[in-house]
Nucleic acid binder design. Sequence first.
DNA 1: ATTTAATATCGTAATATTGCGATGATATAT
DNA 2: ATATATCATCGCAATATTACGATATTAAAT
Lengths: 115, 115
Amino acid sequence: MIYYEIMGITKSELFSEKKNRLAAMFKVLAHPARLAILQYIINQKACICNDLVDELGLAQSTISQHLKELKASGIIKGNIEGKSVCYCIDETVWEEFSSSFEDFFKQDILSDKCC
Amino acid sequence: MIYYEIMGITKSELFSEKKNRLAAMFKVLAHPARLAILQYIINQKACICNDLVDELGLAQSTISQHLKELKASGIIKGNIEGKSVCYCIDETVWEEFSSSFEDFFKQDILSDKCC
DNA sequence: ATTTAATATCGTAATATTGCGATGATATAT
DNA sequence: ATATATCATCGCAATATTACGATATTAAAT
């Protein structure tokens, strides 16, 4: 008896809530387009939106999808301004990401027993 | 005339080499199993390997696959010790990851024009 | 009221990822 | 020499991700 319905999905129930959340944060940033979007928003300070399509060379629907994912994570927020939407970094969430990653990497690595 | 062969693949040629590399680093850590593997290696100091199967509750082949991905990124290295393989953190690469993420997050976020 | 501009959503296609069992390779133990 | 233990690889199944065009949706402009 083989259970195939398990395949393909991450078995999140095996891992701590903390690790699942941290992995999800890494995942949001694990695509160059999303990094480029964040970088553009940071550089421009003002939160222009449709410019990203010209800037990155991806289709409008693709950019919109990436923006949705970034927004779902909380790292950016969008304000409706007339017929356009102005996106900007959510500084609180940005700092949360930053310190979560920092906490992970500040652990002492002492691995000399075999390598 | 529609070109479908483009679909599904990340268009890395649109982005800077730096962003592609940074995204790839985030991607390595974007799975709870790989975070758990790293955590276990760090906690145990000594670099045991097959224990991960018991520890995480994933199949041996699945663990092996995650280890391969971690190793390919350079963040861990493996030493053959008899019939087992001892994995440990590569401290240099670990620091590279750490400082790359730190550099990204130390940017000034000044977004008040609209949000 | 109709057009235009900006964005979101839907449907679809293709690749990527995750996971497992089975099998293969290699080194120690018997 | 054979068995056992450890790990890697292969093949497959299922879901996830990435990308696009087409089509809403909404608000401003004419």
